[in-house]
Design a protein around this nucleic acid. Structure first.
Length: 426
RNA sequence: GGAGAGUUGGCCGAGUGGUUUAAGGCGCACGCCUGGAAAGCGUGUUUCCCGAGAGGGAUCAAGGGUUCGAAUCCCUUACUCUCCGCCA
């Protein structure tokens, strides 16, 4: 979340930034509420500290008097301190109240967009950062969408998935399953070559973790909640991986921190319907390889570029037409300062599908999770967190199947053959 | 699931209601010593809030309670370890 001193000192910048997200004057009053609650907090804290100081002092005196055998004086002092108790209790309640209000307000303020982020509220306001300048796949008239191909070659079964669990939980089988595993391994190996440490994290997280990366409270309804144990199924590996570093003070020489992990991802996608959810376009469970970086604030934007280049190289190796969007303020995730979306062209559907989202959160997440490093001056400073999909599988599979289809089979991109062990799906 | 024992600073570890400071050790930083180093000696070393500073407050797993006063006593929760049960 945002730090109060920033809201105070850079008030105008914060307001301008939030306007890009569509905040009007009315919505912006939340900033003034923050300042008000913070003032209340400080004042109450000061008053309380003073009383506590007096209490401690007098209590020590009581101890000393008892030690000297001066019982009556001690008793008198006890009554005196007893009077303080009520005021202390009252101030403690006030303080708790002010902190709670302050925290609630802060939790509801999203990150301030980077200056490069275009203003806007609609998808069409996203900026085309990099257009596809190569050739588009030429498909026959008879080309099929991926859900038809999945059926034709018996590689993905949506109906059985729906029977076992529900719609949006596809079952991969045979070469479909092997292709899935090949892509996961390919992505992990490529990340490994770039120096990312591979991990396998827990697939369920507690509320603290969800809060730290910002899924809670903002996206409460988007996660599957296991109520019996109050745990959440992860919507992305970002959550468990970034939370490795929750409540941590790093040494500056521990940078760069580069972690990658494959996990299934679970999303309720409440409110989605129609053509958007056809086939693999939008599912409740999908596989994804995520890359996460924890960085010194001075380098995070250079690192963001590195991450973009990495994702781009994956798409190039897979031979998929792609474009890169710079998200507008309204489309930007709650916690993100800047986000680039990668979309691949799914040639039979004639649709661009989002397959990666690469973001710099600056200090928004690290402030929530108390992730700091000791800087050159020896002070503890918030680190920057970044992450990106590299890549999300389901839609990549959709595009691969559609774009590489021939009348009698589907070719496997050359780069994947060592991982699949076969060259065609027939 | 049952029973028991635990959780103290970067790490180890003492501390069963009060005598301004959570003992001591290790590690780390700086200084003295040295030709240089080691050893030795000295000083410093949790984090957060308020404050220009001096200083004040909080912090002994978390949250409540008892008390003039809680690391210490009581309650709840989480986690760790041991044993039993179940189990891939």
């Amino acid at each position: 979340m945002l730090r109060v001193p920033i809201i105070r000192k850079e008030y105008d910048r914060v307001r301008t930034g939030l306007r890009k997200r569509g905040y009007d004057d009315d919505a912006l009053t939340i900033l003034d509420h923050v300042l008000k609650y913070d003032d209340q907090r400080k004042q109450t804290q000061n008053e309380l500290d003073e009383l506590l100081s007096i209490r401690t002092q007098k209590s020590k005196n009581i101890g000393a008097l008892i030690g000297q055998g001066k019982k009556e004086e001690a008793e008198a002092l006890k009554t005196e301190v007893g009077v303080l108790k009520k005021s202390i209790e009252q101030l403690e309640n006030q303080l708790r109240d002010a902190k709670e209000k302050l925290n609630d307000a802060l939790l509801n303020i999203p990150n301030v967009p980077h200056e490069l982020v275009p203003a806007g509220t609609k998808e069409s306001d996203n900026e085309l950062f990099k257009a596809w300048d190569g050739t588009m796949p030429q498909l026959d008239e008879s080309a099929l969408p991926h859900w038809e191909l999945a059926k034709k070659y018996n590689i993905i079964d949506f109906e059985i998935g729906a029977k076992i669990t529900g719609s949006g939980f596809p079952l991969y089988r045979g070469k479909g399953s092997k292709l899935q595993r090949a892509l996961i391994n390919f992505f992990l190996e490529e990340a490994g070559k770039q120096g990312y440490e591979e991990i396998i994290p827990p697939l369920m997280v507690n509320a603290d973790s969800g809060m730290a990366t910002g899924q809670l409270p903002d996206k409460e309804g988007q996660m599957y909640h296991v109520t019996a144990d109050d745990l959440y199924l992860i919507p992305t590996a970002e959550v468990p991986i970034t939370n490795i570093y929750r409540d941590t003070i790093l040494n500056a020489d521990e940078f760069p921190i580069k972690v990658t992990g494959y996990t299934p991802c679970f999303r309720r996608e409440a409110g989605s319907y129609g053509a958007h959810v056809k086939g693999l376009n939008r599912v409740h469970q999908f596989d994804k390889v995520e890359i996460v970086r924890i960085e010194h604030p001075d380098h995070s934007y250079q690192v963001l570029d590195e991450m973009l280049a990495h994702v781009e190289s994956l798409l190039q190796k897979l031979g998929l037409p792609y474009r890169i969007l710079r998200l507008c303020g309204g489309d930007l995730g709650f916690t993100s300062a800047i986000t680039y979306d990668f979309e691949v062209f799914s040639a039979a559907q004639k649709k661009w599908l989002e397959v990666s989202s690469v973001s710099n959160f600056e200090t928004y997440q690290s402030n929530r999770m108390k992730l700091r490093f000791r800087n050159e001056a020896g002070k503890n400073q918030l680190a920057h967190t970044l992450n990106g999909s590299a890549l999300a599988l389901a839609r990549i599979v959709a595009a691969l199947l559609e774009n590489y289809q021939k009348s009698d089979g589907i070719d496997i991109p050359e780069v994947l053959v060592p991982y699949t062990g076969f060259e065609r799906i027939e």
